[in-house]
Amino acid sequence: MKTDDLISMLASDAGAVAPRVWRMRYALAIGVGLVSAALLMVLMLDGVRPDIADAARLPMFWVKLVFPATLAAIALLLAVRLSRPGMALNHLGMVLAAPVLVIWLLAGAALLGAPPQDQAMMIWGETWSACLLNVPLLSVPAFIGVFWVMKTLAPVHPARAGAAAGLLAGALSATVYALHCPELAAPFIGIWYLLAMLIPAAAGALIGSRLLRW
């Protein structure tokens, strides 16, 4: 087939294309991902922590929610840009470091202000392994959803796009898991929440470099 024939073929009855269809798709994937994570939490982990009303009065409870939620927002911007050709990233990758730095500063301050015998507890908490297990687990529906959306779009850097998709899923999941998790120490959040979100991000990079080619 000659190139001119291909052009005629493509242009015949091409039809109109709705602009920015990806917005609805991302909204859908995130909505379904969040609801599914909440459902999984109710089914597998007995839902939110029993003392959530008391915990909600503590500032650290909100820090624990806002930290992954902020990462999710930045990861969404990254995913949206990385899934379409020719979109500038505008240093968004570096912006990701900001919430991490803030939580590490809080963690450092908390550790410095605590008596030495309490420091190990602030770092390890009682549930670090549950955090590492549950956040990736609850992220699976959002992970699948965001990957599905990206598959319908055209990421020119599949591994990076996959990492952003995984981080988005992990951060959404961590935000939901924060409602269940009993830990409140900044060092715990700065270490284990971050690692737990990076697990789906790493998986996303690996899977994306294969699955997101087009």
């Binding site: 190139t3 291909l6 052009i7 493509l10 602009p19 379409r84 979109m87 779009l153 055209a154 087009w214």
Partner: peptide, 13 residues
């Protein structure tokens, strides 16, 4: 060309 056509919904005006 085929890719441009298939992915034309990813173009932002």
């Amino acid at each position: 060309l085929l890719a441009v056509h298939n992915q034309r919904h990813t173009y932002d005006p």
